[in-house]
């Protein structure tokens, strides 16, 4: 913990991201304190009631937040690699689309879109190709799991067309 990392960039500027993480940890600790304080601590014969453990966890999180602040000022965090944001956005969009469309469009279409957008995130730009491939693949998976193996996967227009 005492080693100074990344010697070339050791300007004494605190690591902003780490400070943000510390703030989030402190906020979680505060949230736990606030929520648990409303519970009745009645514990019967055990002196450890329903509030004890959450309080302990909140205290530790608060302590870790302070530790993280120190680490931020000492630049103790490992150097972060450059992150491409657009692929992440494509994949998150795919997951969100699947979540919202699942009950409307059925498993095959919703998951096919997730498939195509994930491939897009990894650089396959040809959506006109990957989207049909994804939907066909997901339909095959749906047939195997929902029809053959009786897993409850939501059906939509495409599935109703065949079954």
């Amino acid at each position: 913990m005492t080693k100074g990392l990344n010697p070339s960039t050791t300007t004494r500027r605190p690591d902003r991201a780490a400070l943000f993480i510390a703030a989030v940890l402190a906020a979680i600790a505060g949230l736990i304190f606030w929520d648990v304080s409303r519970l009745s601590g009645a514990a019967g014969y055990s002196q450890v009631g329903p509030t004890t453990v959450p309080y302990a966890i909140a205290c530790c999180l608060a302590g870790l937040a302070v530790w993280t602040v120190f680490a931020a000022f000492r630049n103790d965090f490992p150097e972060r690699e450059h992150q491409e944001i657009s692929p992440v956005i494509w994949i998150v969009a795919g997951l969100a689309a699947q979540m919202l469309l699942l009950n409307v469009a059925g498993f095959s279409i919703a998951t096919g879109i997730l498939f195509a957008l994930t491939a897009r995130g990894f650089g396959k730009r040809k959506l006109w190709f990957s989207l049909p491939v994804g939907i066909a693949l997901c339909f095959a998976v749906w047939v195997i799991f929902a029809k053959l193996l009786q897993l409850s996967l939501p059906a939509g227009p495409l599935e109703h067309l065949f079954f």
Partner: peptide
């Protein structure tokens, strides 16, 4: 990679949907 990870996400969500849609 594009097809591999697209497939992984498909099956990962399939398991979750199947357990609790």
């Amino acid at each position: 990679k594009p097809w591999l990870y697209a497939g992984i996400l498909m099956f990962a969500t399939l398991g979750t949907i199947g357990a609790n849609p």
